[in-house]
Amino acid sequence: MINIGIIGGSGYTAGELIRILMFHPNAKIDFVYSTTNAEKPLSVAHQDLMGDIEMNFTDTVNPNVNVLFLCLGHGKSISFLKENPFASHTKIIDLGNDFRLINDKDFDGKSFVYGLPELNKTSIKNANYIANPGCFATAIQLALLPLAADGLLSEDVHINATTGSTGAGVSLSTTSHFSWRNNNFSHYKAFEHQHLGEINQSINQLQASYANELIFVPNRGDFPRGIFATLYTKSDESLEELLTKYQAFYKDQPFVTVTTENINMKQVVQTNKCIISLMKKGNRVLITSVIDNLLKGASGQAVQNMNLMFGLNETTGLHLKPSGF
């Protein structure tokens, strides 16, 4: 059994991790760390776990766990690891943004691998430290990687993507209150979202010559979870040629499906899936990508990475059912 510690246990991503791992056939949760809820039952923060798991939060750690999941706010993983050393054999999966960029991947003798399995599966299998991708970054990269792999990105890419309220985290802010969010819609961080760095990094990993702009407008939706992303750019390839390239790129990737049908977010919410739809109009290709921001965009992908690191089938514990209605 893989002995697991979870840090930052009261947030949305930690709640999803617990839900997956408590039914994972090869996993045992050793501790869930939360200074604000220490000694309280997990169901205090995650009410849907009531009756499923009898465990309390703790404010102490077991430094000898097999794998540590960091579910902390962005920029807080480094300070936590400085204050809390773990055994040399402990593998670490960080769900924050501290180690995602090449210039930030090395820390205290540890070198973090960017954890997008559809791009870096071999490296993930051999890694001890993983920087889990961001949610918007996952949806957008999966939409663009097949084009970059064939050197087909030659123009700016226009991106419009909408995420649910859970993308803002569990702490309240003006724009996450129900009275503001309900029946409302807005954009934020237009053209300068923090995930652009990791997206560009992955694109250049496959197509080093790409120097155009990713023009990204992120939106807040009035729903709890999911990401619906639409991207368009110029392409001389026919729809049939693009479909063939996408299907070939993802043929060994169990969580990615490519289609030319119209898709919707309910097809992926509550799952670790990404569905990509292709459409062609004149010399423009429209790519639609849908994921669950808390699963394929965070905790599900983290467990997928854990499975790869420990030599398991990457789908283990991740056969999850979408909510179609």
Rank of each mutant, 00 (worst) to 15 (best):
Q47L: 11
K125H: 05
V256I: 12
F310I: 04
L144I: 04
A149G: 09
N283M: 03
N128S: 15
V44L: 06
Y114Q: 02
F178V: 14
G15R: 04
Q270K: 13
G317S: 08
F107M: 03
N204S: 07
F191L: 12
A131Y: 10
N182K: 14
L243W: 03
Q301F: 09
K266P: 05
I53N: 12
F112N: 02
N97Q: 00
Y12P: 12
L278F: 12
G300M: 06
Q253T: 10
K245C: 00
T316S: 00
E83D: 15
A302Y: 03
S323G: 12
T233K: 13
L172H: 06
I140T: 12
A131I: 09
E16F: 02
D108C: 11
T122K: 07
A87K: 09
G221H: 11
I20H: 08
I29D: 06
N128T: 10
K28Q: 10
D108M: 15
E54A: 11
K189M: 14
D292I: 10
M50E: 15
N62A: 01
P133E: 11
G5P: 10
L152S: 08
A127G: 07
Q207M: 08
E261V: 01
N120E: 11
E237C: 15
E83W: 04
L116S: 04
Y246M: 05
H89L: 03
N272C: 14
S186N: 08
D108F: 11
S77L: 05
S43P: 06
Q304E: 13
G15T: 07
T260N: 13
Q270R: 13
I124Q: 08
R220V: 00
P117G: 10
P25R: 11
S165A: 14
I6G: 05
A27T: 06
G134S: 11
Y188F: 15
T138S: 15
G151R: 11
F99E: 05
F99K: 04
D236G: 10
P133G: 11
L17P: 01
P85N: 13
S88C: 00
I140Q: 11
V285H: 04
F185K: 13
F185M: 07
Q270L: 02
T122C: 01
V113K: 09
H193E: 15
K234R: 09
Q205I: 09
N307V: 04
N204I: 07
I275L: 13
N212E: 08
L153T: 06
H89V: 03
T90E: 02
G167L: 02
E261P: 00
K266N: 09
D108K: 10
A248W: 03
Y232W: 15
L231R: 10
P254W: 07
T244M: 05
Y33P: 10
N64K: 09
N200G: 10
L49D: 05
N313V: 06
V157M: 07
N120I: 03
Q141T: 12
S289H: 05
A161E: 01
F185Y: 15
L172R: 04
G311F: 03
T259G: 00
E213S: 15
G75T: 03
V258T: 07
I18K: 08
I263R: 02
L152Y: 02
D236M: 14
D94N: 05
V65E: 04
E118I: 00
L81I: 08
V217Q: 09
A161Q: 01
V303G: 01
F107E: 05
H158T: 09
N200D: 13
S165V: 14
